[in-house]
Computed example of a mutant assay.
Amino acid sequence: MNQERIFKVLLGPHVSEKATVLADSKNQFVFKVDTTATKLEIKKAVEQLFNVKVKSVSTLNVKGKTKRTMRGLGKRNDWKKAYISLEAGQDIDFASAE
């Protein structure tokens, strides 16, 4: 997988209370990913970018909310997130990522 596709697949970490609990207890990390990305692409991108061994990848399509605005109804964009399980002893440090 080329370097350009890696940065297009992973859009960034998804920071939430649930994601923090998963990182502490089950060694899982949550990323916001491209809607066209496959599980294999996500796995390879995380392994190359953070130098860790990925155990499994679960993906979830999040539907955008419909919101009322001054001009009527609007809709937020749909997006995709990935739950990354790492092998035992592995950890991702976002501060020292290359």
Rank of each mutant, 00 (worst) to 15 (best):
A97Q: 13
V9N: 02
K44D: 11
E98Q: 14
Q90N: 08
G74T: 10
D91R: 09
E17L: 13
R5E: 08
S25F: 05
I6G: 02
T38S: 10
K8V: 06
K63Q: 05
K53L: 12
T20P: 01
A82P: 03
A95D: 14
D34S: 09
A37E: 00
M70I: 06
E4W: 11
R5K: 12
A19N: 08
V15C: 01
Q48G: 01
S96Y: 04
K67D: 03
N2I: 00
T38I: 01
S58R: 15
T69K: 10
G74K: 09
S16L: 11
A19Y: 12
K39E: 12
H14F: 10
V46M: 08
T59Y: 04
A23W: 06
I6R: 01
S58G: 07
V62T: 04
D34K: 05
I92C: 08
V30L: 09
L22F: 07
L73C: 00
L60D: 05
D78M: 13
K80Y: 06
L10Y: 04
T20D: 03
A19W: 10
N51G: 12
I92D: 03
A97S: 12
A45H: 00
R68K: 15
R68N: 12
I92T: 07
E47W: 09
H14T: 14
P13M: 12
V52F: 06
S16Q: 09
K53V: 11
L60G: 04
V33G: 00
I6M: 06
K32P: 02
N27V: 07
V62S: 04
K55E: 11
Q3G: 05
A82N: 04
G74V: 05
K43S: 11
N27H: 13
T35Y: 06
G74Q: 09
T69F: 05
S96D: 04
F31S: 02
R76Y: 14
L60Y: 15
E4Y: 15
A19E: 05
A45T: 02
K43I: 10
S56N: 07
E98K: 14
E41V: 05
N27T: 11
Q90M: 13
K80T: 09
L60Q: 15
E98M: 07
M70T: 13
Q48T: 12
V21D: 05
A95V: 15
R5I: 09
S16R: 08
T20H: 13
K55T: 09
E41R: 03
I6T: 03
A95Y: 12
G74H: 08
R68S: 06
V54K: 03
E17W: 09
P13T: 13
A82G: 05
F31A: 02
N2R: 10
K75V: 15
S58V: 07
T35W: 02
K75R: 14
D34R: 02
A37L: 02
P13D: 01
L10I: 15
N51S: 15
V33L: 00
F31C: 00
R71P: 01
N61G: 03
A45S: 11
K65C: 06
V52T: 11
W79C: 04
K8T: 06
S25R: 12
M1F: 13
V54D: 01
M70D: 14
K55R: 15
K8L: 02
D78Q: 14
D93F: 07
V33F: 03
R76E: 14
I6H: 02
V46Y: 01
V52G: 04
K81R: 15
